Amino acid sequence: MAEQVALSRTQVCGILREELFQGDAFHQSDTHIFIIMGASGDLAKKKIYPTIWWLFRDGLLPENTFIVGYARSRLTVADIRKQSEPFFKATPEEKLKLEDFFARNSYVAGQYDDAASYQRLNSHMNALHLGSQANRLFYLALPPTVYEAVTKNIHESCMSQIGWNRIIVEKPFGRDLQSSDRLSNHISSLFREDQIYRIDHYLGKEMVQNLMVLRFANRIFGPIWNRDNIACVILTFKEPFGTEGRGGYFDEFGIIRDVMQNHLLQMLCLVAMEKPASTNSDDVRDEKVKVLKCISEVQANNVVLGQYVGNPDGEGEATKGYLDDPTVPRGSTTATFAAVVLYVENERWDGVPFILRCGKALNERKAEVRLQFHDVAGDIFHQQCKRNELVIRVQPNEAVYTKMMTKKPGMFFNPEESELDLTYGNRYKNVKLPDAYERLILDVFCGSQMHFVRSDELREAWRIFTPLLHQIELEKPKPIPYIYGSRGPTEADELMKRVGFQYEGTYKWVNP
């Protein structure tokens, strides 16, 4: 592979701008107003304001973009700056750019259920340069409990009458099928589907988006991507930290609602779906819905739930269990780990287990898709061969690698495990991989909904998990304890083995 010439960040961002501006969906010269509902909250200060700053800094926003914060707290732009700027990672050389960014910011205080507050917000936006005809993007960085009041008031008082209007809704989209349907029906009564952007930030990850290209742009994968060759698929999300004093919020939802029903299920769809007619948003989402419709409700015998306990040999936070978090209700049975087996009941995947695993306070930070292939028929190497695996590593250190057998150097035919490896950090030294939120917010500006969740996708996802969630809430089974920093409950490994996964433990990928 030829040595790549190092590029400056300015040059890299210039390439990104060229890609972005050559499309006809990006209205570079139009006025846009980006409204952050819930501007005083954690999500706004840690993710949304920093993301908008990065896009502005790199010249990736339309030229005439204004940012308006809205929340109940009586704040000023200076207050917003004070709480969000520490997350910007701005350099001293960017000081003038930073001043320009905050000059485009404003803030309006108001209630979430008060019509007069929204009329005041609308008047404020109209007073901005060309504000009355601007395109408006409303980001709901809010708890779902206020979605209905907020969307109703936005629709009645704050819509642009000339430009387009788009609304970005953060997960969780309800707690179960019934609450999700209620919320979807409410929002759909106010906005068209092409105006609604239900954001799952995992769909903005580079390697998640790469799944489609790997599958449908490489001839070698087509013939082997089926039940005849693939023994099982494992989708993993692991965090090495616990709730760390923020367990009160987590306890309301648990690990299945927080990660599995959305992030992991979306990745499953991209692995299992048929080739779409095109890369058009609805063509892709149509195929994802077909996959979900082929999955039956989760069966309790295919589920393992766990909850982390303190590690007596650990240090600091590792010595504390979930129930030691003062914000967690006493005696909570909320799971911090889950392993679930699903089956896609169609011709391509009949009988292939899709194993979804996620948890907190585990032994490493990792998100990946792992396809394990069947054993080689007619073994001539005296059971020395391990199964081939194709691994798409989402985070950290984005990579695609194939675990395969090669001859060990020497005189004899002794096979050993090795890999074919594409590590993004080595291959793409001159490429700026956008943060997931950067990519998705740019998608909203461009009107691309491919990486957002459609209402029928959402409904099918909740259909699969709601009976299990209701059973857990009714019966309150005690989750299996696992030690902070471990791989999780051993019962999860036993479940995976029972459905056909072979864990060798003899080879570990190392970032080159």
Score class of each variant (00 low, 15 high):
Ala2Phe: 12
Ala2Ser: 10
Ala2Arg: 09
Glu3Trp: 06
Glu3Met: 09
Gln4Thr: 05
Val5Gln: 13
Leu7Lys: 10
Gln11Thr: 08
Gln11Ser: 07
Gln11Tyr: 08
Gln11Ala: 11
Val12Met: 10
Gly14Ala: 13
Ile15Tyr: 05
Ile15His: 06
Leu16Pro: 03
Arg17Trp: 03
Arg17His: 06
Glu19Trp: 05
Leu20Tyr: 06
Leu20Asn: 07
Phe21Thr: 08
Phe21Cys: 10
His27Gly: 11
Gln28Ser: 07
Asp30Phe: 10
Asp30Glu: 12
His32Phe: 10
Ile33Tyr: 08
Ile36Asp: 00
Gly38Trp: 01
Ser40Asn: 04
Gly41Lys: 06
Asp42Leu: 14
Ala44Asn: 00
Lys45Gly: 04
Lys45Trp: 11
Lys46Thr: 10
Lys47Ala: 10
Lys47Met: 13
Ile48Cys: 03
Ile48Leu: 11
Tyr49Asn: 00
Tyr49Ser: 00
Ile52Leu: 13
Trp53Asp: 00
Trp53Gln: 00
Trp54Asn: 15
Trp54Cys: 09
Trp54Arg: 09
Trp54Leu: 11
Leu55Ser: 08
Phe56Met: 07
Phe56Ala: 02
Arg57Gly: 02
Arg57Ser: 03
Asp58Gly: 04
Leu60Gln: 03
Leu61Met: 03
Leu61Pro: 01
Pro62Asp: 03
Thr65Gln: 01
Phe66Asp: 05
Val68Asp: 00
Gly69Ala: 06
Tyr70Lys: 00
Ala71Pro: 00
Arg72Val: 07
Ser73Arg: 04
Arg74Phe: 10
Arg74Ala: 12
Arg74Thr: 04
Leu75Thr: 07
Leu75Glu: 08
Leu75Met: 05
Thr76His: 08
Thr76Arg: 10
Asp79Ala: 06
Ile80Met: 06
Ile80Phe: 11
Lys82Asp: 05
Ser84Met: 06
Glu85Met: 08
Pro86Tyr: 05
Pro86Phe: 07
Phe87Trp: 11
Phe87Met: 08
Phe87Asp: 03
Lys89Ser: 11
Ala90Leu: 10
Thr91Glu: 06
Thr91Phe: 04
Thr91Cys: 07
Thr91Tyr: 08
Thr91Asn: 08
Glu93Phe: 06
Glu93Val: 08
Glu94Arg: 02
Glu94Gly: 01
Lys95Tyr: 13
Lys95Pro: 02
Leu96Ala: 07
Glu99Phe: 03
Asp100Ala: 12
Phe102Pro: 00
Arg104Gly: 01
Arg104Pro: 00
Asn105Tyr: 06
Ser106Tyr: 12
Tyr107Met: 06
Tyr107Glu: 01
Ala109Trp: 06
Ala109Phe: 06
Ala109His: 04
Gly110Ile: 00
Gly110Trp: 02
Gly110Ala: 03
Gln111Val: 10
Gln111Ser: 08
Gln111Arg: 08
Asp113Ser: 08
Asp114Trp: 05
Ala115Gln: 13
Ser117Gln: 06
Tyr118Lys: 01
Gln119Val: 09
Arg120Ala: 07
Arg120Met: 11
Leu121Thr: 00
Asn122Glu: 06
Asn122Thr: 11
Ser123Arg: 11
His124Gln: 11
His124Pro: 00
Ala127Thr: 06
Ala127Arg: 06
Leu128Glu: 03
Leu128Trp: 08
His129Phe: 09
Leu130Arg: 08
Gly131Tyr: 05
Ser132Lys: 15
Gln133Ser: 09
Leu137Ser: 04
Phe138Ala: 01
Tyr139Trp: 06
Tyr139His: 10
Leu142Trp: 10
Pro143Asn: 10
Pro143Lys: 06
Pro144Arg: 13
Val146Cys: 07
Tyr147Ser: 14
Glu148Asn: 11
Ala149Asn: 08
Thr151Asp: 01
Asn153Arg: 07
Glu156His: 09
Cys158Met: 05
Met159Pro: 05
Met159Gln: 09
Ser160Asn: 12
Ser160Pro: 02
Ser160Gln: 06
Trp164Met: 04
Asn165Pro: 00
Asn165Tyr: 02
Arg166Trp: 00
Arg166Ile: 03
Ile168Thr: 02
Ile168Trp: 01
Val169Tyr: 05
Val169Glu: 07
Glu170Val: 08
Glu170Cys: 08
Lys171Pro: 14
Lys171Val: 05
Lys171Ile: 04
Pro172Asn: 06
Phe173Asn: 05
Arg175Pro: 07
Arg175Ala: 12
Gln178Leu: 09
Ser179Arg: 05
Ser180Arg: 05
Arg182Met: 07
Arg182Asp: 11
Ser184Tyr: 08
Ser184Arg: 04
Asn185Thr: 09
His186Tyr: 09
His186Ile: 07
His186Trp: 08
Ser188Gly: 13
Ser188Met: 11
Phe191Ala: 00
Glu193Leu: 02
Asp194Asn: 09
Gln195Tyr: 02
Tyr197Phe: 07
Asp200Leu: 13
Asp200Asn: 15
His201Met: 07
His201Ala: 05
Tyr202Lys: 14
Gly204Val: 15
Gly204Ile: 15
Lys205Phe: 14
Lys205Asn: 15
Met207Thr: 15
Met207His: 14
Val208Gln: 15
Gln209Asn: 15
Gln209Arg: 10
Asn210Trp: 06
Asn210Ile: 03
Leu214Cys: 15
Phe216Arg: 03
Arg219Asp: 02
Arg219Val: 13
Pro223Trp: 03
Pro223Ala: 14
Ile224Pro: 04
Ile224Ala: 15
Trp225Thr: 00
Asn226Ile: 01
Arg227Ser: 09
Asp228His: 15
Asn229Tyr: 04
Asn229Trp: 02
Ile230Leu: 06
Val233Asn: 01
Val233Leu: 03
Ile234Leu: 10
Leu235Ser: 02
Lys238Glu: 15
Pro240Gln: 08
Phe241Cys: 15
Phe241His: 12
Gly242Val: 03
Glu244Lys: 09
Glu244Ser: 12
Arg246Gln: 14
Arg246Gly: 04
Gly247Asn: 11
Gly248Asn: 07
Phe250Ser: 05
Asp251Asn: 10
Asp251Glu: 08
Asp251Ser: 07
Phe253Tyr: 08
Gly254Thr: 03
Ile255Thr: 13
Arg257Ile: 10
